[in-house]
Computed example of a mutant assay.
Amino acid sequence: MSEVRSVARSGDLFEQRLREHCAGQPIRRLDVLVAGCAHGEPLVLDHIETRATGADEDLPAVRKVVEERADLVSYSLGDLRSVPLPPRGFDVIQLSFLLERVRHAELVFDRLLQALRPGGLVLLRVRDRRSAYGLLDRLTPGWLRRLLWRALVLPGTPGPLPAVYEPLASSDGLHAFCLSRGLMITDDERATSGPARARRPVAALVSLVSKLTSGRFPASHDEITMVIRKPQHHFARLI
C-alpha cells in the first residue's frame, strides 16, 4: 500500500503530476473527462490546451452548476453506467467527489476507465467513508441534511447531494479496485476540506464522532486524494 502523506492542496499535486505527464511528449491538447462536474475545478496548464467534457448524474443541484460552467465544451447527465463516452477518448479523468454519492460505484468507475487512454491519469478526490465526517454524513437522515445544508456549508456549495458511501469510497476499497484492474496508484494523500472545515459546528460534530468511535473513524481527514495511472500495456481484464 502506498505511503500516506499530508497535503495542503490537492490542486498542487494534480498540476505537478500533469506537468510530469506532459513533459517530453508531443502533446498539444489534453482531452479531460470531468466526472463529478458539480465541483468547478477547471484544469489550467500553461502552453497546453485542455478540452474538458463533463459527466455526472442528472440531479437538480448538479444540473444548475453544470449549466453555469464555461470550461466544459460539452457534458452528459444521467446514468453513469451507460453515459455515452468515446472509448479511449481522454488523456485525463478528473474524478471529483463522485464515488461517494453514486450507487454501483465500481461499475461507474469501470465505465469511466474505458474512456481513458493507455498511459492516462485519474486525478481522484473522494470523501472517505472510514473518516468521522464520512460516517456522520452517511448516517445523517436526508431530511436533516436538506434542512441544515445551507447553514453549514460555504455559499455556492452544490447540494445536498446523495451520501451513499459504498466500500469503494475508502482507501482499502480503492487499493483493492486498482489492484484487480492493473492500475498504478502513484500518490495517496489525505486532507480536510469542504463542510468538515468550513463550519465550526460540523468540525465539532466530527471530533465527537471520532471520540465516540475511539478513533476508528478519525477526524484527522475527510478527503482521499489519489493520482492513478492506467499503464500503457497490462493485464487488466476490463480495461
Rank of each mutant, 00 (worst) to 15 (best):
residue 154 L to S: 15
residue 149 W to V: 01
residue 170 S to V: 03
residue 198 A to N: 12
residue 193 S to E: 15
residue 199 R to M: 08
residue 159 G to N: 02
residue 225 T to Q: 05
residue 117 R to M: 14
residue 151 A to W: 14
residue 200 R to T: 11
residue 131 S to L: 08
residue 145 R to A: 12
residue 113 L to I: 04
residue 220 S to R: 12
residue 157 T to P: 03
residue 123 L to K: 08
residue 136 L to N: 05
residue 195 P to A: 10
residue 157 T to M: 13
residue 201 P to W: 11
residue 115 A to R: 08
residue 146 R to N: 09
residue 194 G to R: 01
residue 183 L to P: 12
residue 206 V to C: 08
residue 204 A to V: 14
residue 216 R to M: 12
residue 185 I to L: 11
residue 181 R to L: 07
residue 188 D to F: 15
residue 118 P to G: 09
residue 142 G to F: 03
residue 152 L to R: 02
residue 155 P to T: 13
residue 215 G to V: 10
residue 179 L to M: 06
residue 188 D to K: 02
residue 118 P to T: 10
residue 120 G to A: 11
residue 125 R to I: 05
residue 174 L to A: 04
residue 150 R to H: 13
residue 121 L to P: 01
residue 160 P to D: 03
residue 126 V to S: 14
residue 117 R to V: 12
residue 166 E to P: 10
residue 218 P to K: 08
residue 219 A to Y: 01
residue 155 P to H: 08
residue 195 P to I: 10
residue 150 R to A: 08
residue 117 R to S: 15
residue 188 D to T: 02
residue 162 P to S: 10
residue 208 L to Y: 03
residue 158 P to R: 09
residue 181 R to K: 10
residue 185 I to G: 03
residue 217 F to E: 03
residue 165 Y to P: 12
residue 192 T to Y: 00
residue 153 V to F: 04
residue 218 P to Y: 09
residue 133 Y to L: 03
residue 179 L to D: 13
residue 184 M to R: 15
residue 166 E to K: 04
residue 199 R to T: 15
residue 128 D to V: 06
residue 128 D to W: 04
residue 143 W to E: 06
residue 200 R to V: 11
residue 215 G to E: 05
residue 164 V to C: 09
residue 195 P to Y: 05
residue 176 A to E: 14
residue 166 E to C: 06
residue 190 R to T: 04
residue 172 D to Y: 07
residue 215 G to L: 07
residue 152 L to K: 03
residue 165 Y to G: 03
residue 200 R to Y: 04
residue 145 R to H: 03
residue 200 R to P: 04
residue 146 R to P: 00
residue 210 S to D: 15
residue 154 L to H: 13
